[in-house]
Structure formats: C-alpha cells, structure tokens
Design a protein around this nucleic acid. Structure first.
Lengths: 248, 248
DNA sequence: GATCCTCGTTTTATAGATAAAATTATATAA
DNA sequence: TTATATAATTTTATCTATAAAACGAGGATC
C-alpha cells in the first residue's frame, strides 16, 4: 500500500520535503522552477548578445529544440520573448531571424537609455546610501581593470544597475535592462577581439556628484555618458567599414 | 497533367498569383497572414485594456484555446506577448493572471511616457509638415466632441501618434505604444461609465508651439500634459476609494 | 482539531501528425 | 545559356493526444 503510493505520489512527497527545507537550499531549486521556455530564451539571448549567432541568421525551431533536448513548443515561446526584447524578428510563416542593426539603431538605443536612465536616477537619488555608492565605485574599478570586453561590460552594467535600481520602478528597470542587452550586443559586435583598458572618468564624476547631493549634475553627466558612441574602422571579410557601439 | 498538378501545387500557384496582385489587394490578405497566436494576443489585450477582464483574473489556457477554436500552443505564445507588454504576469506552474496596477504604476507609466514622448517629439519635429499638424488638430477636435471614453481615448492616441511617428525610431515607437496601452487601461478602469466632454487646451498649445517652430515649448507642454493624472472618488462594491488615471 | 492523504483541475511539456508555405534543387523550354 | 516551370525538401504553424508535476479542496485518520 505504501509502496504503490510512493510510485504514484513521488512528486508530492518531494513537495512536502521542500516545505521543510531552509531557504538557502530552496533557492538552489529555483533554477528547476524556471520554465524550459525561459531557459531556452535566456541561453539564446546570451548567444545573440555575445555575437555567437550572426545578425540575420535564421533560428530554426526544430534544430534549437533538438539542441536543448526539448520539443518545439517551448522553443516557440522563447522566440516570442526574444521578439519582445528586440533581439529577434519573426515573420509569419517565414520563421525567426536574429535582429540586424545599424548605426541608427545604436543611436536610438543610446538616446532611449539616456532618457530613461536619467529618469531612474532622479527617483533613485533620494534612496542612495553610501554603501551603494561604494559598491558602484568598486564596479567602476573592476571595469577599469578589465582586460576584455566581456568583463568590462559586466562591470559597467553592474554600475548602472546599482545606482538605478533604488528607483523602485519595476517597469522602467525592465525596459532599461532590455536596452542594456541591445547596448552590449552592439559593443561585442565592435570590440570582439581587442579591448584596451581605460579609466572611466564619467562614472567617477557621476558618483562624486551624487555624494555631494548634486543630482542635476549627476543626471547631466549620465545622459552624456550613455550617448557616447565609440566608432572605429574594422576590416572584416577583406573590406573595411566603420562600426559603432554605445560605450558607457 | 495540369489537373494533377493543381491538386498538389495549389499553394504555389496562389503564391505566383500573389506576385501579380496589386498592393491594395495584397494588403487585404494581411489579416489572413497574421498568426493565430498574434490574433489571440491582440484580442486578449483589447479586453484587458477595456477592463472586460478584471485585474488579477486568471487566464486559463485551455478555456481561451476553446473560445478561439485553437489549441493551447498559440495561446501560450500569446501569453508571452502579453507578459512582455506588461498586461499579464506569469508565475511558473501557477498560470497567467491579468496584471494588477496601483497608483505607483500609473505614475511610473506617466513618467516613462513623458521622457520618451519628449524624445520622440524632438526627433519628429524637423519632419512635421503642416498636413500632419492639421490632421493632429482634427484628432484634437474629435477628442473634444467625444461623448464616451473609448472614442476620446482613440482620438487622443491618434493625436500623439501623428506628431510622434515621424521621429522614425521604431523601437521607441513600439515602447511608447505599449505605454499607451497601459495608460488606456488605467483610464478605462476609472472613467468606465461616465465621461464629461472637455476641451483639450494642452493639445492646442503643443500644436501652436510646433507651428511656430518652438520645439522646446512643445516638448515642455507635452511632458507636463502626459503627467497630468486625473483622480476622483468612486464607489464600488459599497466602499469608497480614490482612483487615478493618466488623462492625456 | 491538526495533520496527512487523495482526487480533480490546471499548467507545462512531449510526441507525432498534418497542411500550407517557403526554399532549394532539378529539369525543361526559349 | 538563361530563364522558367516543376519537383523535392525543408520549415512553419497548427492540432491532437498524452503524461508528469503542482496546486487546492475536501475528506480521512490519529
């Protein structure tokens, strides 16, 4: 009787055990609570941002399903998420492609970030503590010491998130996150191989202004900072062309 | 020979015919090119915005699938789209609910709209023609003459779209559209039954400034305009409470 | 009365099948 | 040879059926 029950109620028993678990162990299970579609969408987003999948490349649902050991249904859900993030474009009956981008989109994202990050900073400023500003300073130093684009981008994103998050506006932060993903994509497409270390004076100016309570100067510097578009010529496939990216 | 071919190649023949069709007839087919998932997402969004489905109400995939004569697969895709728009929230293994909202979210959307619509207007201004401004004036008049919220909201949205669209920033416009959907939802939740006609002085001030080429005044007025949050007490379910909405 | 078990419902995901459309390859005619 | 028509293949988009997992509502048990 108990045996036949365990056969049928295994999942339930595990649930009850979960309630008995302390929180730090529960958090380890969080990944298993994530949906397959969410996992696929996250992985594909990472690859698109890293430039592992070329802009314009087709995303074939059955191939991706096979790769992730899933069926096509969660793959299609992941596609909808990527579409909403602006990382992929879907044409009915023609499939999904990695979104292409040009200088005008780089500029567009930069200007949207300027407008929205300033808004966020204005609301976050009253809630900023010196502990947060210290952490942001640490992130800036980590960026300055980065030897490659990937770690520089991670540190840069950490800086922006630290000073903006306390605005307590979830919708705004979600939109900014998507814009950061786009920015990172532009950056990786441009500075894929070579990256020269540089000190971030803007970040330090923003922090100095915030410590003084001068929100206006901080906002003005931030707005200018994220609209700074780096450009340089690269040779790819034999022919030269100029490439651009948001650097900040 | 021709007969057996038509049986198997009907689709291809139709495709060739499509190439021969003039554009105005092609556009009529556009709706049939729309995906079932897109259709479901659109219909659900309409209902959520109109307030036909209560905030917090569960969206059960099998019920919705049955209602639209579809399977659960396109319904789930529609859910992802609604989630990205901020109209629904999805908790893994717990299903999807219509997103709830409070005053803080109304304010958040208003401020995001102010920031982004000003950005759009700044870029649209150089491309605005007197024909566009005349059409925007017509939309304002239509709003003033509206006897109900629905038609007022449609006219208001038309006004904003007319003066912002020429910015030629697709990502920005898509984000603004989603924010307008949220605004409309707040509005309908508040002024569902009674709506008093009023003349929109802000719209006229914006148009006057644009005609004079005074972009700064137009932007400042627009920013103030979309942040104007109407509030009034309503009695619902016996108890009184204050409700708020973006009115502009 | 508190705890545990069971059952029905719902979500999430899989698998297989199908129709329509798009793509690619091939053969044919001008 | 080139352009076009035909055929074969692939891919998308959808449906149906099915199964595991999770939740909630009672009901049984101690």
């Amino acid at each position: 009787m108990a045996g036949s029950c365990r056969d049928r109620c295994g999942g339930r028993r595990r649930l009850i055990d979960k309630w008995r678990l302390p929180n730090y162990l529960l958090n380890m299970n969080r990944k298993s609570e994530e949906t397959v579609a969410a996992r696929i969408s996250r992985h594909l987003a990472d690859r698109i941002i890293a430039g592992e999948i070329e802009p314009g490349a087709r995303l074939r649902q059955d191939h991706i399903a096979e790769e992730f050991g899933a069926s096509h249904v969660p793959v299609r859900e992941a596609f909808r998420r990527l579409e909403a993030q602006g990382l992929a474009i879907s044409e009915p009956r023609r499939g999904v492609r990695v979104a292409a981008f040009d200088l005008s989109e780089v500029k567009e994202v930069a200007e949207m970030r300027a407008a929205l990050e300033v808004l966020a900073l204005r609301h976050a400023a009253p809630h900023l503590t010196s502990a947060i500003l210290d952490a942001a300073e640490e992130a800036t130093k980590a960026g300055d010491n980065s030897r490659d684009v990937r770690s520089w981008e991670a540190a840069n994103r950490r800086f922006h998130r630290l000073i903006l998050e306390p605005c307590r506006m979830p919708r705004l932060m979600a939109t900014i996150d998507d814009l950061h993903a786009a920015s990172a994509r532009f950056l990786f497409a441009t500075w894929q191989s070579d990256w020269e270390t540089r000190t971030d004076h803007d970040h330090r100016a923003i922090l100095a202004a915030l410590r003084k309570g001068d929100v206006e100067t901080a906002c003005a510097t931030l707005a200018r900072h994220v609209q700074w578009i780096g450009h340089r010529p690269i040779t790819r496939g034999g022919r030269k062309r100029d490439v651009f990216a948001i650097v900040g």
